[in-house]
Amino acid sequence: MRTRQRDRDVPAPRAPWNQIRLGLWMGGHYWTDESGELQFAVVGDQFDMVVSLYSKDGHGPADGVEHHVATMPDGPLTADQIGRVRKLAEVTAQAITEGRNVLVRCHAGYNRSGLVAAQALMHLGYDARSAILLIRRKRSPWALHNSLFEQYLESGLDVTHLLVGLD
C-alpha cells in the first residue's frame, strides 16, 4: 500500500503524528514503523480537536472529539479552499491559545496539514519562514515540500486568496 500520490517520491512518515509546539500536532492517516511496515494512524481521544484535510473512514477521531473536515487537493487551491485553510488555521490557533491539544492531519501529514499548521503558527506570532522551518524540523524534512503551499505562506494567505480569486 502506498502512502503518497503516484507522482510523489517521498518517504512515508516515521510517526503517525509529531508535536510541532505546545498544543499543536501534525500528522497523517498512514505512517511506517521501525520495521518498514505501513501502519494506519487512527486517532482516538488523544487530542481535544482534530482538523482533517483528508478523511478516511475508520481513522477517527473518537466520538465527542471536536472534528473539522475540509478535504482538498495537495495541489493548486481555489479561493474557497484557501479561505477554508485560513478559517481552520484561525480555529486551530484559538484552540491552542485556550490550552487545547490540536492535531492537524492530511494523507501523509506533510503538505495540506503543513499549510494549516504553518498558518496557525503565523497567527501565534511566527513569520512564514520560521513556521515552515519549525514544521520541517519537528515533523519531517519532507513537510511542506509542495512549493506552491510554501509560496502561499510566504506571500500571505490573504494576498493569495485575493489573487487566486481573480481567475
Score class of each variant (00 low, 15 high):
residue 134 L to P: 01
residue 23 G to H: 05
residue 97 T to W: 06
residue 85 V to L: 07
residue 9 D to H: 14
residue 36 G to R: 06
residue 89 A to G: 12
residue 30 Y to D: 04
residue 53 L to D: 08
residue 3 T to A: 11
residue 77 L to N: 12
residue 101 N to C: 11
residue 135 I to K: 04
residue 7 D to Y: 15
residue 103 L to F: 06
residue 98 E to R: 15
residue 81 Q to N: 12
residue 26 M to I: 07
residue 38 L to T: 12
residue 122 M to I: 13
residue 66 E to H: 14
residue 50 V to S: 09
residue 5 Q to I: 03
residue 39 Q to H: 11
residue 158 D to C: 03
residue 95 A to G: 08
residue 125 G to H: 14
residue 135 I to P: 02
residue 121 L to K: 08
residue 11 P to S: 10
residue 12 A to P: 11
residue 116 V to P: 04
residue 136 R to Y: 06
residue 32 T to W: 01
residue 36 G to T: 03
residue 78 T to F: 03
residue 24 L to M: 08
residue 25 W to I: 05
residue 101 N to F: 08
residue 5 Q to R: 15
residue 115 L to F: 10
residue 133 L to W: 05
residue 93 A to P: 08
residue 116 V to R: 05
residue 155 S to M: 11
residue 67 H to I: 11
residue 128 A to S: 08
residue 84 R to K: 14
residue 98 E to C: 08
residue 17 W to N: 06
residue 165 G to C: 07
residue 148 L to F: 09
residue 56 K to S: 00
residue 78 T to M: 05
residue 102 V to E: 05
residue 87 K to L: 14
residue 92 T to E: 09
residue 112 R to P: 05
residue 19 Q to W: 04
residue 27 G to P: 05
residue 138 K to L: 03
residue 75 G to Y: 14
residue 6 R to H: 13
residue 84 R to L: 01
residue 125 G to C: 12
residue 77 L to P: 11
residue 60 G to F: 03
residue 97 T to R: 15
residue 154 E to A: 02
residue 42 V to I: 15
residue 104 V to G: 03
residue 1 M to A: 13
residue 78 T to A: 04
residue 92 T to C: 15
residue 139 R to S: 01
residue 92 T to S: 12
residue 96 I to E: 05
residue 128 A to V: 01
residue 55 S to C: 08
residue 166 L to C: 13
residue 147 S to A: 14
residue 143 A to Y: 08
residue 13 P to F: 00
residue 56 K to C: 00
residue 134 L to H: 03
residue 111 N to A: 00
residue 148 L to N: 10
residue 52 S to W: 02
residue 71 T to E: 15
residue 69 V to T: 11
residue 68 H to F: 14
residue 129 R to H: 06
residue 98 E to H: 14
residue 93 A to K: 10
residue 112 R to A: 00
residue 4 R to V: 12
residue 15 A to M: 09
residue 21 R to Q: 13
residue 136 R to A: 02
residue 72 M to S: 09
residue 80 D to K: 13
residue 160 T to L: 07
residue 45 D to G: 15
residue 45 D to W: 10
